[in-house]
Design a protein around this nucleic acid. Sequence first.
DNA 1: GTCCAGGGAGCAG
DNA 2: CTGCTCCATGGA
Length: 258
Amino acid sequence: MQSIKTQDFHLQHTLDSGQVFTYNVEGEGYRIIDGAYSFFVQQKGDVLFYEGVDEPFLIHYFRLDEDHSQVIEELQKHKQLKEAVTAYRGLRIIRQDPFQCTMGFLCSQNSNIPRIKKNMQYFVDRFGNGVFPKAGTILSNLTQARLGYREQYIVETNKQVNETFFRSLEGMSYPQAKERLMELPGVGPKVADCILLFSLDHLTSFPVDVWMINVMKELFPSCRKKTPPQIAAFAQRKFGNYAGYAQQYLYHWKRMQN
DNA sequence: GTCCAGGGAGCAG
DNA sequence: CTGCTCCATGGA
């Protein structure tokens, strides 16, 4: 077991904030699957213990290379964010495997997190031999997965993507990559924004779901008569490069209230 | 039983 | 372009 010292990092808030679905409690820590990797992590105070990946991977995955105190400072300039940021300080936006992230949020539409986790576990067990399957390989034998109407989106998207596709997205701007992602069946503005934020490093992305509609309307009265895309645009104007973090803190904070 | 969930596609206006 | 309906399923 290796370890790394962290600052302003909270493993549980990070994992439980609905951005990643392929992890499970194991002992006193968690086992996480990301792409071809399966690894164990456990946090004790500021120290993160890990096994199964190397240090550069871990730093990249949890964004430990970022000065998170600066993110906090920036977010706290907005009084509406203070409570959420204080309560869940250390919530990092993960850098996930893009294909895995795409599958997760294709499963997410009109669903709930426990169910999405089950869907993703099925992909791992049935196609991945313990890790996440490769892009373009989730094509058949999906009846047992109980995906409902999302099954056709999974299959059709897998017919259209491979590893090169996701690599090409990495070179694109936010609007370019979003437009390209939305050409995939089952990927609309919300799912695209989640993929862009959680796997493609676009921290200006601001995914708006039911929870975000509600929390934004509570905190910012000017959002009360806005549509979801208008709320996203409002937040991106207001928070700029910190919009993604604002979104994730607010989302987790709001959900933990219920 | 009923309501809701990290929405998107298809269609009418 | 916006607004409405339907979608299949399980968790609460």
